[in-house]
Simulated scan of single mutants.
Amino acid sequence: MRTLEEARADLDRRGKTIRQFAREIGVSDRIVYELLRGRFKGRRGQAHKAAVLLGIKDGVVE
């Protein structure tokens, strides 16, 4: 699992904005912003999906 800083750095390394990443995975960019700020935990729904794909949470996306 990654820290929030590592997840942000990974997006930077790939040259992707938060908005681009959110669109690619089909979630609201607001959710991704809040996850990376530490306000959302990613327990359910789109927040869970985004957290798992960012690598900040261990889980399964179906």
Score class of each variant (00 low, 15 high):
R2N: 11
R2L: 13
R2Q: 11
L4G: 08
E5F: 01
E5D: 14
E6Q: 10
R8F: 02
R8S: 13
D10F: 03
D10Q: 14
D10G: 00
L11T: 05
L11W: 10
D12H: 11
D12N: 08
D12Q: 14
R14A: 10
G15N: 08
I18Y: 02
R19C: 00
Q20C: 01
Q20F: 01
F21V: 02
A22S: 14
R23V: 07
E24P: 09
V27A: 04
V27F: 04
D29S: 12
D29V: 00
I31A: 01
L36G: 09
R37C: 02
R39D: 14
R39F: 08
R39Q: 13
R39E: 14
F40N: 13
F40H: 13
G42H: 08
G42A: 04
R43A: 10
R44T: 15
R44Q: 15
R44A: 13
G45E: 10
A47N: 10
H48V: 01
A50R: 03
A51P: 08
V52Y: 01
V52W: 02
V52S: 03
L53H: 00
L54V: 06
I56M: 09
K57L: 15
D58T: 11
D58R: 15
D58N: 03
D58V: 14
G59C: 03
V60M: 09
